[in-house]
Amino acid sequence: MKKILLLLLATLFLSSPSYAYNYNEPHSEVLQSQLETARSKTLHVVGVTETRFEGTTLTFGSGALLDGGYILTNEHVIAGSDSIVVDTFDKQKFDAELIASDHTKDLALLKINTDTKGFVLADESLLYAGMPIMSIGNPHGLAMWSYSEGTLLNPIQRCKWDTGESYNLMGDNQVLSGNSGGPLLNNKGELIGIVRGAAFDRSFSITLKDIKEFMTKSLP
């Protein structure tokens, strides 16, 4: 029994995040220097559903702006919505068009009318365990958006979701409900993933491989 208890304590100690920082508290000067630009490309995504008996229902999440007015977010953020509205960090509001969605990958592609430059996709071959990462989003409608930084623990973590099994990026940066669909970035401010969820002090994000496959199928 004593040996089992020691093993359990050791497991808990080793599984605790070693590099995670306090939520919304920048620590790295390199990542902090990317924050202002990254916020301008991060969106608050609202799915609006109108029902006869329940009235208006809203679902909230985040999104990552790409060039051409395209936006990546999670499918579960906008699933079943009658309309979609996105807000920018500088308080602009847009009606968004749903271009495509993939339930299994949990990705959705939206489009708005803007010429703002979006995130650049990183080179996935350069991802490695131990690299610094940050995520941005708008959980709970925070006025200053949210910011979280940490370390990429595994670029190909095997995960089981209710939509099936997939490989995701696993990090120790903190994400909250409402961060779903937001960007995961490297220290150059390049997009390396789309935040999907969190569990046990770990964040899980959709990989560039899945993003590129989805974009290839979704765009003409």
Rank of each mutant, 00 (worst) to 15 (best):
K2C: 05
T88M: 05
I194A: 01
L208K: 03
E54M: 11
A143Q: 15
L7G: 08
S62Q: 08
L8P: 03
T56V: 15
L176K: 09
L169H: 09
T59V: 13
R196W: 00
D95K: 15
A122K: 04
V175D: 01
L153Y: 10
Q32P: 02
N187R: 13
T216D: 11
D162C: 07
P155N: 09
G69A: 07
G141T: 02
I206M: 00
S40R: 12
I206L: 02
E165L: 05
S81D: 06
D95M: 10
K160T: 15
F94P: 04
P183M: 06
L14M: 15
P26M: 12
G182I: 07
G189H: 00
K105L: 08
P220W: 02
K41T: 04
Y147G: 00
Y21I: 06
Y21V: 10
F119Q: 07
S16C: 02
G197H: 06
S40F: 03
V86Q: 04
E50N: 14
T73P: 02
E165Q: 15
G130N: 02
N154P: 00
Y128F: 15
L6G: 02
R39D: 03
G150M: 08
T104F: 01
R202F: 01
L7T: 09
S81M: 06
M144N: 11
S203Q: 06
E29M: 14
L110W: 04
E54W: 13
D82Y: 05
Y167W: 05
T216H: 10
L110I: 05
D87M: 14
E149G: 07
I4F: 08
A100Q: 08
S33F: 13
V195K: 00
L152N: 12
P26K: 12
L208S: 01
M144V: 12
T56E: 13
K188H: 09
V45P: 03
T104K: 09
T151A: 12
D87W: 15
S166I: 02
K160E: 13
Y70S: 04
I156W: 09
V195I: 14
E25I: 12
T56N: 09
N173T: 06
L142E: 08
K212A: 02
H27P: 01
V175F: 00
L31I: 14
